[in-house]
Simulated scan of single mutants.
Amino acid sequence: MRLLSRPDTTYVERPEDRAALLRLVSLLLQYPDAGLLAARAELGRAVAALPVPQPALEEFMRWFGDRDPMSLARDYVRTFDLRRRSSLYLTYYLHGDTRRRGMALLTLKQRYRVAGLTPPEGELPDFLPVVCEFAALAGPSAGEAPLRQHRKGLELIRTALRAAGSPYALVLDVLCAALPDLSEAERLAVADLALAGPPAEEVGLAPYGPPLNEMEVRP
């Protein structure tokens, strides 16, 4: 991928500004590998240069820029790989482990291809950084449609991150502030989903589940 409650967030209106913001969100939600860590200073400058100031991202960058690489890697795996409630695979929240999720993944991949984009190899098309990058490239209308479709899932992730005290909640605050707010009915649905969990249908869907094996480590 390329660099390019709503406390401390500001809605971004111009398409080019939204694209810059979404690219930053995409990068900051990726695993902190050597390439991302080497770009921390550049990312900090990009956040500071946003036309609409984003104090939440600035606060996140202060945390992200000061942490040692091993701590960042452990935080990321613990936050996103080992907890279903804050998994970054969006179709899980809408469809759970059901056959409908496989169709949703296929539809999303086809949406990318129609726009002339190819999802990265080895990553599911509903991975939130991939969805944000698509939104940045394809524009507010078609590009942000998957984010709007999964708005309730994004709210669940944000709520889970806040409950866990994770600094990554600041990044979700910014993303959610750039999208339409939830209606009262949607907020009730989010609360119900947080209690009951997504639909379950275990047969034949292991490849689509978010990684949850506590022995699994990233390279």
Rank of each mutant, 00 (worst) to 15 (best):
P140Y: 04
A34L: 08
L161P: 07
E214M: 07
E202D: 04
L21E: 05
P119M: 01
R84F: 11
L36G: 00
A49E: 07
A20E: 06
L128V: 11
E123Y: 10
L72R: 11
P7Y: 05
L24D: 07
D181K: 15
S5V: 15
L170S: 04
R151E: 00
R101A: 04
T98H: 11
P219A: 10
V12K: 08
L161K: 14
L72H: 09
A178D: 04
A56L: 07
L50Y: 10
Q110M: 13
A189P: 01
L27R: 14
G116R: 03
L24N: 09
R218L: 03
Y76A: 12
R14P: 00
P207N: 06
C132E: 06
P199L: 14
E58M: 02
F64W: 06
E186G: 03
A46M: 12
L105Y: 15
L21M: 02
A169E: 08
A115L: 02
L205T: 15
L128Y: 14
G116I: 11
P53F: 08
R78M: 06
E216K: 14
G209A: 06
L137W: 13
A19W: 08
A194C: 05
G143Q: 10
G143A: 09
L124H: 13
P219S: 07
V114N: 10
S26D: 01
G65P: 06
T91R: 00
C132A: 06
R18K: 11
A194V: 09
E216M: 14
A73K: 10
T118K: 00
R18P: 00
G65H: 06
P119F: 07
F80H: 01
E121Y: 10
L212N: 08
L170Y: 01
T98Q: 09
R45S: 07
E201D: 15
R6P: 00
A136Y: 12
F127M: 00
Y31L: 05
D173T: 01
L108I: 10
Y92N: 11
Q149W: 15
S26N: 11
T10A: 11
L37N: 03
G116P: 04
R218G: 02
V174M: 10
L156W: 11
R67P: 00
G44L: 06
V174Q: 07
A164W: 11
R99E: 08
L37A: 04
V171F: 10
R162P: 00
V203P: 00
L3I: 11
R151A: 04
P199M: 12
H150P: 05
D33S: 02
L22P: 02
R40Q: 10
R84K: 10
Y76Q: 04
V203I: 15
R218A: 02
A46W: 03
A115Y: 01
G102V: 15
L117W: 09
Y31D: 06
R111H: 12
L88V: 03
F64N: 03
E58G: 03
P55F: 01
L117P: 01
G153C: 08
A135M: 06
V52N: 01
T9S: 03
P167M: 10
P167G: 08
G122I: 07
